[in-house]
């Protein structure tokens, strides 16, 4: 497919808006539909699309498997770190009331940070699954 000019050009146009949209969904998650999971899938879709067009080797140069193996647990680590941080502020696990100067902002910060963790893990997992399927029979 990498020689199909239409696909290549169209992809180049789509990739950047896709990633931007992922970020929008990510940051708008507190107020509207969206959040880390959806954003992660959209971002992963961008990487996967790129992989479909240019092939496995180039996309793995861009997003290497080793990076994914760090990102998958890393996202969970962010999530848990936020949760555990509440301990040190005297709250229950995942209670963000004291993360900022007042409870509402605290919750906002908490959700924001947790969603980043979700984003990292979900996006990297989606890409890893893609690699696993695409790489079948080669490794």
């Amino acid at each position: 497919m990498r020689f199909d000019i239409v696909l290549r050009v169209a992809t180049k146009f789509i990739l950047a808006p896709l990633l931007l949209f992922a970020l929008y969904v990510q940051f708008h998650g507190d107020y509207g539909p969206g959040g880390g999971f959806q954003a992660g899938v959209i971002a992963a879709a961008a990487v996967i699309l790129y992989g479909l067009i240019v092939g496995l080797a180039p996309v793995q140069r861009l997003v290497p498997m080793g990076l994914l193996e760090v990102m998958i647990p890393g996202g969970v680590l962010i999530y848990m770190a936020v949760g555990i941080a509440s301990f040190f502020l005297g709250d229950n696990f995942l209670d963000y009331d004291h993360l900022a100067h007042d409870a509402v902002h605290g919750q906002e910060w908490g959700v924001f940070l947790v969603e980043i963790g979700v984003f990292v893990t979900v996006s990297s997992t989606m890409v890893a699954i893609f690699y696993a399927f695409a790489g079948r029979g080669r490794s």
Binding site: V70, I84, N92
Partner: peptide, 26 residues
């Protein structure tokens, strides 16, 4: 501080261990 969080530590500790084990890759 720890005593009051025991129920959730029960899950967090192995979960954190899992994450660190995965990150270590060794």
């Amino acid at each position: 501080m720890i005593a009051s969080h025991l129920p959730v530590l029960l899950i967090i500790v192995p979960l954190l261990g899992a994450v660190l084990a995965a990150l270590s890759r060794h």
